[in-house]
């Protein structure tokens, strides 16, 4: 029931995005879209995913797009070219997918092949094999930890790419930044300063509680970064930059990824396969515990540092045309 309503909302929001011309409103709708999606994820039992979608889609992506709009323009022009070809492509693609659904197992059918082959092993064995009750964390950080290493690498790559693109456009110290408007609001400053320690504390909780509940390095990294971004907004970008100089951020970004790979290399040196945590201690469970802990820490560090440097890079772009 909840699903149907949420999906209906989603469809309405998506159509509204397609129809509207005011980019600012579109971005806001997109944030709502992400939040609704997160709600559906919860109702589909994917709490970790919902957490991430809320933090990323409704948080980071929306902020990034908004700050881009602030540097560009908020009205979209009426497009002039024909809509027929795109419509045709979309209809063909959609028809192919709908055709594909005809033989799909019914929604939430426990007999579907997805639930028969690999997943039962995780559900039945993962806790004994890794000692982590949150199976999503167990699969993410141990069984498929190589994918997660790829994920950290993707974040690192994006960070480098943004720096490559924007670092030449840094404004200089003497130019006053327009973004730190908030620093003149006493109320906002006071409340934000009150909140920041709790945000950081919560990030730590998410980082280290990921074994038992939803959460983990990525979500924690985003929240941690959000705390510092809030600090940047209320205290001023320049002050935040003083706290995180470029070289320090580079160092942090690289060290998180290196920590992750390092865990793999050490396990290799100790005689196991790459990222085989069992060799870290005499007791494989203990080894797994250490491995997952370090790897999640690596994820957290790189994500935090990347998010902060991306934010700083965006907010330091010169506004002059």
């Amino acid at each position: 029931m909840i699903n149907i309503i949420l999906l209906g909302f989603l469809a309405v929001v998506a159509i509204a995005v397609a129809m509207m011309r005011d980019l600012f409103a579109i971005v806001m709708l997109f944030g709502i879209y992400s939040l609704l999606t997160a709600g559906i994820f919860v109702s589909l039992d994917a709490v970790d995913v919902a957490f991430t979608e809320a933090a990323v889609g409704a948080g980071i992506s929306t902020i990034l797009i908004l700050s881009t709009l602030a540097l560009t323009s908020r009205e979209e022009k009426q497009p002039t070219h024909s809509f027929l070809l795109p419509l045709l492509v979309v209809l063909v693609t959609g028809a192919t997918l709908v055709y594909g659904t005809l033989d799909m197992p019914a929604f939430s059918d426990p007999e579907a092949p997805v639930h028969q082959h690999v997943a039962p092993h995780y559900l039945n064995q993962a806790e004994q094999e890794t000692g982590v009750p949150n199976i999503v964390t167990a699969v993410l950080a141990s069984y498929r930890s190589y994918d997660t290493m790829g994920e950290v690498t993707v974040i690192f790559t994006a960070g480098i790419a943004v720096l490559l693109l924007l670092s030449a456009f840094r404004h200089h110290e003497d130019e006053a930044s327009n973004l730190n408007d908030l620093s003149h609001h006493p109320v906002l400053r006071y409340i934000a300063r009150l909140m920041i320690p709790f945000i950081l504390l919560f990030a730590l909780y998410v980082q280290f509680h990921g074994d038992y509940g939803p959460g983990g390095g990525f979500q924690a990294g985003v929240i941690f970064a959000a705390g510092f971004i809030l600090y940047g907004l209320v205290v001023g970008i320049d002050k935040t930059r003083q706290m995180f100089s470029e070289s320090k951020l580079h160092w942090l970004m690289a060290s998180g990824l290196l920590l992750y790979i390092g865990v793999g290399i050490v396990s290799l040196l100790l005689g196991g396969e790459f990222l085989n945590y069992n060799v870290f201690a005499a007791d494989p469970l203990k080894g797994q515990h250490w491995g997952i802990f370090l790897v999640e820490l690596g994820v957290g560090i790189t994500v935090t540092a990347t998010m902060i440097s991306v934010f700083l890079a965006f907010s330091e772009v010169r506004r002059s045309e």
């Binding site: 160092w251 690289a254 990824l257 290196l258 790979i261």
Partner: peptide
């Protein structure tokens, strides 16, 4: 097989340092 991919990967963050 894994070193094939991991060796260039290690070098990438090192470049930044």
């Amino acid at each position: 097989p894994v070193l094939q991919v991991v060796l260039p990967l290690i070098a990438a963050p090192l470049c930044l340092l």
